[in-house]
Nucleic acid binder design. Structure first.
Lengths: 189, 189
DNA sequence: GTCTATACCTTGATAGAC
DNA sequence: GTCTATCAAGGTATAGAC
């Protein structure tokens, strides 16, 4: 596939990514995606064999973007405590979108987890990467392995719950309050 | 509508309730529901004008069941601390289902919140009822109004996050560990 | 590689016999 | 009230011209 082909493929993935986030996977149709990226839907089958294949590509793309984001934090913040502050603060950077459409990882995994779609393993691995990053920071701050794992799970749980309730109530204060608590807790460690 | 009619209506609501929980609202079709409750789908339109009307009935039914459940806890446990223990423990009673299909309130509100379905307000009110119950317990335990609200939100956030991650990872330990922490926290208040 | 046209199925919803 | 038959619309996926 040439350069032009790669570009088109990426345009499809980007449009699908946005729409799946905003409407959900089942509720997103090829017609929607075609309209958003300005391509006839017949073209999709040149790049992806099925709708699920497109979903896999979208999840891989999200995974890649998250890895880039985490890498940047790792480079910019060598200190594990400051690093952790940045990681838990990330949802607030997209506060408005989280209120409107929920957590991009959480809402998709919730939908795919009900059915037994293949994409569920991939999206869950995004949670795993986040968990490992958080645990690594906590270990760097002096917590032993078991305690770091325990607390990292608690941090991820809080973020996930706060994103969900912010979305349900359409109120960013849930997210803000919970992340504020996390910042204070980090400084107390 | 006579007794027989009420029965049939309830059978439809029950089947829809189960399927919407297991597959999601969009992914649940009238054909699915008809097969589950053993009625031709043509009948549904005698009881409900649209699929959204049926959704509203399902949410109202869930709301009613939760109210009954909470009432029972209120009668059986006059002490606010014991009461709160029971409330936060509730998800563990359906542990297996939560792992398979997620939180019945959280996953549905996540789906409906993305679209602007009318049912979103009703399902969110289930969170509100839970929040008020938790806050009421905390006030009964001596916390002042603001602090009780703050902590009640934190409790609900933890439960919601734990249910989501249990579902995503298909691992009930997330739920168990978080609820265990909540029990310990309650006893420390 | 890209596009149009369309096959084929399932969806929510309706009509009308009984 | 209950059922069968069917509708129009929209879904994924395919065929084939260019």
């Amino acid at each position: 596939m040439g350069r032009k082909g790669e570009e088109n493929r990426q345009r499809i993935v980007d449009a699908a990514n946005t729409l799946i986030y905003r409407k959900g996977f089942t509720a997103t149709s090829f017609a929607d995606i075609a309209e958003t990226c300005g391509m006839p839907k017949g073209n999709f089958y040149f790049y992806f064999r099925t709708k699920e294949d497109l979903l896999d590509a979208v999840v891989k793309d999200r995974m890649k973007r998250m890895a880039v984001h985490l890498d940047k934090i790792y480079q910019d913040f060598p200190d594990p405590r400051l690093r952790l502050h940045r990681i838990v603060n990330a949802p607030l950077l997209d506060r408005h979108e989280v209120v409107q459409f929920g957590c991009p990882i959480g809402t998709l995994s919730a939908e795919l987890g009900k059915q037994s779609k293949t994409g569920i393993n991939a999206i869950t691995s995004m949670f795993t990467v986040l968990l490992l990053s958080i645990r690594h920071c906590l270990e760097g701050m002096g917590l032993n392995h078991d305690e770091a794992e325990r607390q990292a799970r608690h941090v991820l749980t809080s973020l996930q719950g706060a994103a969900n309730l912010s979305h349900a109530f359409k109120d960013g204060n849930w997210l803000e309050a919970e992340i504020q608590s996390l910042h204070e807790w980090i400084d107390a460690q």
